[in-house]
Simulated assay, not measured.
Amino acid sequence: MITGSQVALVTPMLDNGDIDWEKLDKLVDFHLAQGTDAIVAVGTTGESATLNCNEHCDVIQRVVKRVAGRIAVIAGTGANSTSEAIELTLAAKAAGADACLLVTPYYNKPTQEGLFQHYKTVAEAVDIPQILYNVPGRTACDMLPETVLRLSRITNIVGIKEATGDLDRAKYLIDNSPQGFAVYSGDDATAVELMLLGGHGNISVTANVAPKAMAELCRSAIDGNKVEARELNSKLDPLHQDLFLESNPIPVKWALHEMGLVDAGIRLPLTPLAEEKRDILKKTLSLCALI
């Protein structure tokens, strides 16, 4: 089981929107040095929605090669087409990813039975550990706990990234899922409490800018050290909030640019962080001793 702080890695880009492969390598090295437990490549934060299929697969392959087995690599391979999700998941397996993260199909709004059949079909088609990803605020599709528990009985469906921030739902999944099925937070603001309830880690936006602190936070929370975990989280809470001043990954890419780790590139229809919000985030980065 993959546990701990799992960074939802940005895909660095040049000002013209091309992928910056050199900076991608450096970001991977940064996380290896800072103690991140796993890297999620080409998820929502990695701008999966605007990378073409070849770029998507190339980023996964590049991250796997750079990590070289030192930590786990989870490849984002979800799609609103089941056949496309299978294609991406096959490519991730061929690239050597340790697991795949599959977001619920977006826009077409499947039924709960449709969700079950979608994930079952992908799991049966590709023999690699697969993590469900529920984020209805972005997909307009909410995978209910009962559907998750049905899917948890499929051998290579090994966990869920639950990004609703609903701790009652998370506790229900933790208490009722089979042994070996991981429940991860996908919401930095509530992640510490989910882990203290028995969750297994956090797939994090904040970890992009504060990887060492997030790794320490996750270890404390998973170990059940409530006082220490909450104290660490209180220091990071301004980041949890301000990295969502605009749609993710707009603020986090600007923050990484301010930290000198990436260029300012981002792809349309996303645009750089609005001028009037930059001072807010800059003050938060300074408060957290990141600039």
Rank of each mutant, 00 (worst) to 15 (best):
G224P: 12
H31S: 01
S152L: 01
N233M: 15
L239S: 00
C100R: 04
L173P: 03
T104P: 03
Y184K: 04
C141E: 00
I86M: 11
A38Q: 06
N108P: 06
T139N: 06
V135P: 02
T50F: 13
L268W: 11
S177I: 03
E113D: 14
H200R: 03
L115H: 11
A170F: 01
N134W: 08
W21I: 09
G4C: 08
V126N: 08
G260H: 10
L256G: 02
G35K: 11
H31Q: 06
H240P: 04
N54F: 14
I154W: 12
A210L: 07
S48H: 12
Y119M: 01
P110S: 00
L217E: 05
G114M: 08
W254N: 04
M214E: 14
G165W: 01
D98G: 10
Q117P: 00
V10H: 06
A274E: 14
G186I: 04
M214R: 10
F116D: 00
K93A: 13
L14R: 14
L149K: 09
V183W: 03
G137A: 12
R267M: 07
L27S: 02
K253S: 07
W254A: 05
L261R: 12
L285H: 00
Y172C: 03
D263R: 10
A79S: 15
D166L: 07
A170E: 02
L196T: 00
P269G: 07
A229P: 09
D242T: 03
N52D: 15
V59D: 01
M195S: 00
L167E: 05
S81Y: 10
K23T: 04
R138M: 09
Q241M: 15
A255L: 02
S204N: 06
T155L: 12
K277R: 13
C100T: 12
L151G: 01
A215E: 05
T89M: 11
L236Y: 07
D98R: 05
S286K: 15
D127A: 14
I174A: 02
A92Y: 04
P178W: 04
E146S: 09
I71K: 04
K26H: 13
T206A: 14
I157Y: 07
F181W: 02
L256M: 15
I128V: 14
R169C: 13
E193V: 00
L24P: 02
A72D: 10
G78D: 08
A191R: 11
L270F: 15
L236C: 06
P249W: 14
I39M: 13
K282V: 00
T164Q: 07
K65Y: 09
Y107D: 07
V59C: 07
L197T: 05
V42L: 09
V126L: 10
L149W: 14
M1Q: 11
I19E: 05
P238Q: 06
V64S: 04
K26M: 14
G69N: 03
A210R: 05
L32Q: 02
T11W: 08
G201H: 08
S48T: 01
